[in-house]
């Protein structure tokens, strides 16, 4: 029972925080101290948001823009995970690969995803390749780093046990390092999804003709701050949903192993 009460408490406090934030926002815009163009009121934004759900703006409704964004994101994110996780595990097991890859990787990962925009435009034009590349640039490093860390910090006794059982390299990676790294990999995926989703909007601001980012650019061009804010809210909500889904997956996996969290 205490667990349930704790949960209710945190939900209530969460709502309290949200209410305070909205109240402050509303008070500020209702006081007339700032022009509505500068800071639209939450009511106006909500109205605009619900209009955008059905009415087309910049070529599509808000859900359609979101769907286009999400598709790009999914490609980039899956590609990053599919390459990043195996690479990280391999680097964690084979010292030589670690030594070859690390210097390049450590240099490249400090370049903000958005900095790739000119090249994305140059190499892929306005096709789907550009945004995918930028999302990939954001989502890839956390996948590699967390898989690598997971593999490096496996209980050395488990590695010794595996070696004494005569386990070949490929099986050590798939049956020991990978499952041992799952918690680390999933927290990497959470960071990765966040960075990927953020980079996506950046990419769409420049190299796309659909998507939430594009919607926001068009909103800005039409001096419709409420549209821009609606886009922001949509991005926030989808990001929150993504993170919740990954956190849920993490908890399911931990529970299956008897590590109650």
């Amino acid at each position: 029972m205490p667990k349930r009460i704790d949960f209710m408490r945190s939900v209530l406090l969460g709502f309290l925080g949200l209410a305070l934030f909205l109240g402050l926002w509303h008070g500020l815009s209702a006081s007339g101290m700032v022009s509505p163009l500068f800071l639209p009121s939450p009511v106006e934004v909500l109205e605009r948001f619900s209009t955008l759900l059905e009415r087309r703006f910049a070529g599509a409704t808000l859900p359609a823009h979101l769907a286009a964004s999400f598709e790009r994101f999914a490609y980039g994110f899956i590609l990053a995970a599919a390459i990043g996780i195996p690479l990280g595990l391999l680097m964690g097991w084979f010292q030589i690969l670690d030594e070859i890859v690390s210097p390049i990787f450590d240099g490249l990962r400090f370049i903000a995803p958005i900095a790739w925009v000119p090249f994305a435009a140059l190499w892929f034009g306005t096709g789907i390749g550009g945004p995918i590349m930028i999302i990939f640039a954001g989502a890839f490093p956390p996948c590699v780093i967390n898989a690598y860390r997971g593999a490096k910090f496996v209980d050395p006794r488990l590695i010794e046990a595996a070696r004494m059982l005569g386990t070949p390299n490929h099986r050590v990676i798939t049956e020991i390092l990978l499952p041992a790294s799952v918690p680390s990999i999933i927290s990497g995926l959470r960071v990765s999804a966040g960075l990927g989703w953020q980079s996506l909007v950046g990419a769409e601001l420049i190299v796309a003709s659909t998507g939430v980012g594009y919607l926001m650019v068009m909103g800005q061009a039409n001096v419709s701050t409420t549209t821009v804010m609606s886009g922001m809210i949509a991005i926030g909500l989808v990001g929150l949903a993504l993170d919740t889904a990954l956190r849920f997956a993490e908890r399911m996996i931990q529970r299956r192993r008897g590590l109650e969290v």
């Binding site: 006794r157 488990l158 010794e160 046990a161 595996a162 059982l165 005569g166 049956e175 499952p179 008897g258």
Partner: peptide, 20 residues
């Protein structure tokens, strides 16, 4: 030269694979 299954080890902390 290296660990081999012919020389099997039983560890103090068991070292079982928790996911198996």
């Amino acid at each position: 030269r290296r660990p081999r299954p012919e020389r099997a080890v039983v560890f103090q902390q068991f070292a079982l694979f928790p996911w198996k």
